[in-house]
């Protein structure tokens, strides 16, 4: 279970962008969070990925309350969550070759020996050829780079995936390919997914249920209740 309870977060305590938001993702469930740009959904995604400390509220991950964010969070907890961001160019270290980019989490967690094998294992189904893996970010297209970023997020076999507008910059075919790869990973590992975005059609097709940001923030005191109503189910 990934449980966000009454999260208030932002970059200025006086004007938080996220106010009292609660959201729950069951294990193995794919939840789509819909909202207009600038509404604060990305901040909520960062809180859920342990990358941004909320001003108040609690995050319970698999029954364990989270007490620290970023480097204050235990490594095992951080690596249980894989994150993919909107802009592949900004989310990849410009100096690393794609192979090193994907292997980085393995190296950072002292699993250097596994790296080569795991990179090959991750890259092949995403269509990343050895030639592409030798290149640096500025030598590949946005779509290819986003595939590498996804491979990096999956490198440590996370139990949870947070996808923040991952396909907003991509064309239809690459979008479909990325979603297919994520769904393949989830079906083999049972990982849960929180996908944040603004594309209704895409998220309804992709996720088990979608939640609209407005439903989370309507201040009637029953925000959690409003959530549990499945917004809409895709016809898969």
């Amino acid at each position: 279970m990934l449980e966000l309870h009454a999260i208030t977060a932002g970059y200025d305590r006086r004007a938080p962008v996220v106010r009292e938001v609660s959201l729950t993702v069951e294990p193995g469930e794919a939840v789509g969070l819909l909202g207009p740009s600038g509404c604060g959904k990305s901040t909520l995604a960062r809180v859920a990925a342990l990358l941004h400390r909320p001003d108040s509220g609690t995050l319970v991950l698999d029954g364990e309350p989270v007490r620290g964010w970023r480097h204050q969070a235990p490594r095992a907890l951080r690596t249980a969550i894989g994150v993919v961001f909107q802009q592949p160019r900004l989310s990849s270290d410009p100096r690393l070759r794609l192979a090193d980019l994907i292997a980085e989490p393995l190296r950072a967690t002292g699993r250097r020996e596994e790296a080569a094998g795991r990179v090959a294992e991750l890259a092949a189904p995403l269509g990343l050829t050895p030639d592409l893996l030798r290149r640096r970010p500025h030598e590949v297209s946005d779509g290819q780079l986003q595939r590498a970023c996804l491979a990096r997020a999956l490198a440590l076999r996370p139990r949870w995936l947070i996808c923040d507008e991952v396909t907003a910059m991509l064309d239809a075919s690459t979008t479909a390919a990325l979603v297919e790869a994520i769904e393949h990973y989830r079906s083999t590992t049972g990982a849960g997914l929180l996908a944040v975005g603004h594309d209704h059609t895409l998220l309804r097709r992709w996720c088990d249920r979608t939640v609209h940001w407005d439903a989370l923030t309507s201040s009637d005191g029953h925000t959690t209740a409003a959530l549990d109503v499945p917004a809409s189910r895709s016809a898969r």
Partner: peptide, 26 residues
């Protein structure tokens, strides 16, 4: 504040590693 630093943190990199491997070369 770049997302790639976020990605490194999320990938389990220590503070030292983030500084030495990702920030300083930049």
């Amino acid at each position: 504040s770049r997302p790639y630093i976020d990605a490194a943190v999320s990938g389990g990199a220590s503070r030292w590693r983030v500084t030495v491997r990702h920030l300083l070369p930049g």
